[in-house]
């Protein structure tokens, strides 16, 4: 299956996995979920919007990454997925 993975499970990083989908699904597992769940989802949605992607499945395993790290890992995962697509 087509997937793009980026990032690590080190502290302050996030590992993001994306796969093509016919609707938008975002799953977040975070060490700071109680405090930043909504913010993480927002960063993911904003990044997808900027990349003009509406339908995709995003899985984010977060180890306390800052917003820009989550954004970068998502962008990398998307570009890796698209590269496979050729």
């Amino acid at each position: 299956m087509l997937t793009g993975i980026a990032g690590t499970l080190e502290s302050n990083d996030a590992m993001i996995t994306v796969t093509p989908a016919d609707k938008l699904t975002i799953e977040v597992k975070s060490v700071v979920d109680a405090f930043y769940h909504d913010q993480i989802v927002k960063v993911i949605k904003d990044t997808l919007f900027d990349s003009k992607i509406a339908n995709i499945s995003v899985m984010c395993q977060d180890k306390g990454a800052l917003d820009y790290t989550i954004r970068a890992r998502l962008l990398t995962a998307i570009s890796r997925m698209e590269e496979q697509n050729g």
Binding site: V32, A34, F35, Y36, H37, D38, Q39
Partner: peptide, 10 residues
């Protein structure tokens, strides 16, 4: 500024 303001917990 770095982390964002944490949301209130239950």
């Amino acid at each position: 500024q770095l982390s964002g303001i944490p949301q209130a917990i239950k």
